[in-house]
Design a protein around this nucleic acid. Sequence first.
DNA 1: ACCTGAACACCGTTCAAGT
DNA 2: ACCTGAACACCGTTCAAGT
Lengths: 202, 202
Amino acid sequence: MPRPSRPLLSVDLIVDTALRAVDTAGDFTMPGIAAALKVRPSSLYNHVGGRGEIVELLRERAMSAVLVEPSAEVEWTSTVAAIARSYRDAYAAHPRLIPLLTAHTVRSHTAVAMYESLAHAFRRGGMTSQQALDAITTLDAFVLGSALDLAAPQEVWSIEATTDRDFAEVLAHANTPDRADRAFDAGLGVLIAGWSQLAAGS
Amino acid sequence: MPRPSRPLLSVDLIVDTALRAVDTAGDFTMPGIAAALKVRPSSLYNHVGGRGEIVELLRERAMSAVLVEPSAEVEWTSTVAAIARSYRDAYAAHPRLIPLLTAHTVRSHTAVAMYESLAHAFRRGGMTSQQALDAITTLDAFVLGSALDLAAPQEVWSIEATTDRDFAEVLAHANTPDRADRAFDAGLGVLIAGWSQLAAGS
DNA sequence: ACCTGAACACCGTTCAAGT
DNA sequence: ACCTGAACACCGTTCAAGT
């Protein structure tokens, strides 16, 4: 049955299906998407350029959840914190997607808007433009690294792995379900404290 | 010519070849390694369990370059900074390897030694064991995220991408060759300043 | 113990053929 | 415009056969 009166596929449908596969299985394949949509693999190429394009669409899909409010009213550190959390939550919603995205850099409209907003906040805090660039880069690395942590298996560290007393005591805190969330909040707090100090002292 | 008197292959040889392929092409394949070693793909399976095992061996190879000196003499912040730089440099030596490693977590001997050393340093600085865990997790995320930045293409940001004046000014600093290095040093400095404050205030 | 050769299931992608 | 079916080059892996 070639060419039905109403199209069976759409870009959104394909991306939906790919994202569902990534969330449940950690990866997606063209035949897999086709099967889920009851279609032949070659049909997909009428709507997307190929596997790489689907990955980019998945990246945009994830990034589109980032909220970038240009609230100039509040303290600049609050703006930075809010963006960082939203950015991180967008990734956290699809942890298994992240390893697929690490080959390329972010380039979406949302990403640009986010960086602009961060630039404003850091400049408002008194940073030089060089310092603001470094801060944005650091925040980006921290968020991406933290998100990758979410994709890691549950029990990251077993206490038996070490004979070191200090480290064993540290590890006692490591296997709680909110480990990654706690660590992210703590790390963000440290960064913002450091940036405040930097901005104030320059 | 089956079974030569002296083996043609070894685990080290296979890992060497895989790493060279990753460094030059960004990825490796079993047939590719086999061809480079003038051997049939199936021969590789006499020495390694499969592709996944080679990835793990590559991870160990990269991590083994991390220097973890247990210098209890110097300031704890110096210890942390030294480990972080060494950890990051180990990744930076093979930037294209990093995307291949992000699917799993670190689990090598060197990694454990490194985490132990960090645990000591943070505890020595006066952190609680919970704070030390959070600090280690943050450092890990920051280093991994920064390393991924190295794998990104050269011109990450073009100024034409934005109409925002603040962001454009910030981007003016973005396309220097040492961008990633500068940003890493700056970020590490901010983290250590924040941790010092945290440790002192508790 | 270690390499070969044939085989398998799977992948991404192309393209002529159909309506 | 959009789906099918056949085809291609490629991948990772297994395994009996050889020495």
